[in-house]
């Protein structure tokens, strides 16, 4: 249902992504691992349209997304979270979520009625805050949250879009073990039919969650397979697991 073919991207002389293909079926949980600087985040940027690919294409439900910008891809059902939190820092948790929900409902077209009168949006925002484990901080400004809570909100914003394809870039980076467990739970409870691509450095998380794993190295696919195969692969062990 979601497919990338031969994606390439260079920054100046530096080839960061060198022909990566990947396809994810509905309901699949696909992990991406690779050493620092392997081009994982850049690969996500190519998928979500944040960066323009030099070559290759991205298709969703058989439709080529071509050069469509990130907002069009998001409206088509592609949601992504960022490795470095990208929040509306001056707004509270609930307001952050309400903005995301409003985008999903395309409320930006409405300029004659008050936003605050859309009680269903704010009810959903509060509900989502609770489900993210941020219920107590629903009225705290995003800028004042702890790092872990910010990560949760970062993911929560993307989930508020109800994406069909979800890209998570290192959802548990910098989190405590408890927070990591909470995120794992959150990911487990995602809708069945959702296609998930997740970049992770935490091997426990990835081997636990993923049904398939792709190993990226120097912008290329080093290996792809079931978690057990990847774990057993000498090449991966040497290049990556051994290091971590």
């Amino acid at each position: 249902m979601f497919e990338a073919r031969g994606l390439k991207k260079s920054y100046g002389a530096l080839a960061v992504v060198r022909g990566v293909s990947l396809s994810v079926a509905a309901g699949e949980r696909h992990g991406i691992i690779g050493p620092n600087g392997a081009g994982k985040t850049t690969f996500f940027n190519l998928l979500s349209g944040e960066a323009a690919a030099d070559a290759g294409e991205v298709c969703m439900d058989g439709i080529n997304l071509g050069k469509s910008p990130p907002d069009a891809r998001a409206r088509a059902g592609l949601g992504r979270s960022f490795q470095h939190n990208s929040l509306f820092a001056g707004l509270t948790v609930a307001e952050n979520l309400a903005i995301a929900i409003a985008q999903r409902k395309k409320l930006y077209k409405i300029f004659w009625r008050g936003f605050l009168s859309r009680t269903e949006v704010f009810a959903e925002a509060l509900d989502r805050a609770h489900r993210l484990g941020l219920g107590a901080q629903a009225h705290t400004r995003a800028a004042h949250l702890s790092h872990g809570a910010m990560r949760q909100l970062e993911i929560g914003l993307t989930l508020a879009l109800r994406p069909k394809v979800l890209l998570l870039d290192e959802p548990t980076s910098g989190m405590s073990p408890e927070e990591t467990a909470a995120i794992k739970n959150l990911i487990r409870r995602l809708p069945e039919e959702l296609a998930l691509l997740v970049i992770e450095h935490d091997m426990d998380v990835i081997f636990d969650l993923a049904s398939h794993i792709t190993v990226l190295d120097y912008g290329e696919v080093l290996m792809r397979g079931a978690p057990a195969e990847v774990r057993a692969s000498p090449a991966v062990r040497a290049r990556y697991l051994g290091m971590g």
Binding site: P70, L87, R104
Partner: peptide
């Protein structure tokens, strides 16, 4: 406040 994020949310 954050145009890139708003865009990635589909706006």
């Amino acid at each position: 406040r954050n145009e890139p994020r708003l865009r990635s949310l589909g706006c």
